[in-house]
Structures are given as C-alpha cells and as structure tokens.
C-alpha cells in the first residue's frame, strides 16, 4: 500500500519540486537555471493530473496540465533566446559575473 500509485506520485511531485528549486538556487549557469525551472514545472504537471484524478475531474486536470505544458515550453524558448543574446553580448553565462558587469 505504501508503494501505491498516489503515494509514489506525491513523492515524485515533492521530489521534482525540491530538485528543481535546488537547481534554480544553486546553479551559476543561465541554461542550468532553465533546466531547474523545467524540472520544478514537471512536478506541477504531475500534481495537476493527480489532483484531477483524485477529484474525479481528470479532464479538467488534463486541460490545466496542457496549458502548463504550453506555457512552460514558451518560458523555456524565451529564456533560451535571452541566454543566447546574453552570451553574445557579455560573453558569459555565469550569473554572478553578469550581476557585476556594466555596459
């Protein structure tokens, strides 16, 4: 019973959120921050689907998860485009270096 699907899904939600937050807080590279953000959002996706299933409204949960997938993809695209432009302009992706640079 302890390895039932809802229990595992909750552990996955909490774990993905924790790992993603750790990646966002610890990483010095802009691309790695985007990777951390993606991981945290995947936890939110699983949470939406699980909540929809538990409340007998699986289609609403899926619909919300679909919106989150689209928004998450666009966030990744915009963040990667910004990272590329930052790399071209400042020559680095190191966040502490970027905070001290002036142009």
């Amino acid at each position: 019973m302890i390895f039932s699907l809802p229990n595992i899904a909750i552990v996955v939600v909490l774990g993905l959120f924790g790992v993603g937050l750790y990646g966002v807080l610890i990483s010095r590279n802009l691309i790695k921050v985007v990777v951390g953000l993606q991981i945290a959002v995947k936890g939110a996706l699983v949470a939406f689907v699980l909540a929809g299933r538990l409340s007998s409204q699986v289609d609403v949960g899926q619909s919300l998860a679909l919106t989150v997938i689209v928004a998450d993809t666009i966030v990744a695209v915009v963040a990667l485009a910004l990272a590329v432009q930052v790399r071209r302009k400042f020559g680095t992706l190191d966040i502490p270096s970027l905070t001290s640079l002036r142009r």
Binding site: A9, V34, L45, V46, V58, Q62, I69, A76, V77
Partner: peptide, 26 residues
Amino acid sequence: LMYRVGAAEVAVVELSVGAGLVTVLF
C-alpha cells in the same frame, strides 16, 4: 507516470513537447 495515472492525452503531449521539442531547443 501520467499515462499510469490515467491522463493519456496529456502524456502524449508531454512526450512530444517536453521530451522532444524542448530538448531540440536546448
């Protein structure tokens, strides 16, 4: 995991967009 929970439609979208498109962009 989403497929196992019962959300087959979103699982397909996540597989194609999350594992496919986003990886290509990265």
